[in-house]
Write a protein that binds this DNA or RNA. Structure first.
Lengths: 231, 231
DNA sequence: GACGTTTTAGACAATGCTGTCTAATTGTAC
DNA sequence: GTACAATTAGACAGCATTGTCTAAAACGTC
């Protein structure tokens, strides 16, 4: 009864490592079950079985169902955010192969941040529980999407300053880039289906093509090409 | 016990009108509660109270909770589909005022199909229950999104044939049009918040501007404009 | 007013879930 | 080996919910 709920404050050692393993196992299983069943539909028994852990152990670590849920959301949020920013770090630095680089970048984003398990969890849970637990996801909203858009907008601004793009509103362009990237995948994701590599590539190509048609600095050439083809 | 569950097959009359009223009231309340709480979290008591109806009446009309859920989904699906197609009928017929017309069209779509109660219900329920009840939404998927994209693509094809647009893949363009239209609204919708009229208009303007930059036939002029501004 | 149908309120058993408690067992450090 | 912490299985009360049943009430038609 001492500090069962906060074992991370104790001294290091194998015992603690064992506890961390249990915690991680619980978090992973809980994320899975909450994602499938929602908060109300998820039962602690199911989570316990999937985590290969006694139900009582869950109560030892997280005193309530809601405490566990909060911890899961927190965990997924942190992981998703760090993944997203690490992906942003791979944004093309120069415009030498802009189209190919942007396609590859968008595929990475979609594969590792949007279409993966964490992305699915967040879409699903934010949408169903976001209104019931606003405080839970508010921090994510501030530190997640908004900062992502700003960061991506800044990256586009750099390309724009270099003359590779002609963008007036960088944040709008950033949102549109991601929206175009999802255009061909949305219905699939709505049903929880994971796209194939071919679908990911095709979606990214379509998105980047349109994005560069709208914002590419070589618009005159593209326009002339189109005019020549159609004329 | 005769045909309590199928009173629509009886002869006309005020009784039936009364029954229909009850049914409609139940459907409406159920849609509301299912949308807020999800299938597992919704209780029939809550639905009964919100419908101003006895719980037993619900069981008279829909023998099980799942039966009611199926009926609600069916109802919302039909309504949403018919609304969407009636909105498609307002697609600009000519390219006289293309940008303004497309903005107004996109605002109508977003306001009446995407951001309204039915749109919210569908997004939420398809995402949470779509995997559990695939048969429920499969019909919608076939008759909804796919047909919508085809229809919208055909409308773009008409404009394209008229020389107002330069589009290579009409279905891709249709998906991108809708995706761009949602770009600025997605986060809000994820949290279940309804956008203001100003936000709707701004989102539509940003979307149409980018769409026409990418696909507008007067791209040369637009490109020249940009070049002149930036040069 | 009489009749049939629908609705209603309430009680009811069955079920599943949450959260608590206990006693036994395992694992780890010294 | 001993002592301590963590884990486990099981039982348990409390609660909400589903679905059924019944008798009374309301409603519409004739």
């Amino acid at each position: 009864m001492k500090n069962l709920a906060t074992p991370e404050k104790r001294s290091d050692g194998p015992t603690q490592r064992g506890q961390f393993k249990k915690r991680a196992s619980i978090l992973e299983a809980a994320a899975d079950v909450f994602c499938r069943q929602g908060f109300a539909g998820a039962s602690l028994d199911e989570i316990a079985v999937e985590a290969h852990v006694s139900r009582q152990t869950i109560y030892n670590h997280y005193c309530e169902k809601e405490t566990l849920f909060v911890a899961v959301v927190d965990d997924v949020l942190k992981r998703a955010n760090s993944m997203l920013f690490s992906m942003l770090a791979t944004f093309p630095a120069n415009a030498a192969n802009l189209e190919e680089d942007l396609v590859a970048f968008l595929i990475r984003i979609n594969k590792n941040c949007v279409c993966n398990q964490d992305g699915k969890f967040l879409r699903r849970l934010v949408q169903t529980e976001g209104e019931r637990y606003p405080h839970l996801f508010e921090t994510w909203r501030q530190q997640g999407p908004d900062r992502i858009i700003s960061a991506l907008g800044a990256l586009f601004a750099r390309l724009s300053a270099g003359g590779a793009l002609k963008i007036d509103d960088f944040d709008v362009a950033a949102r549109q880039f991601l929206a175009l990237g999802n255009a061909d995948l949305q219905i699939m994701m709505l049903f929880g289906q994971a796209p194939t590599d071919e679908q990911l590539e095709s979606a990214a190509r379509n998105a980047v093509r349109t994005f560069l048609r709208a914002y590419g600095a070589d618009k005159l050439a593209a326009g002339a090409q189109l005019a020549a083809v159609s004329g």
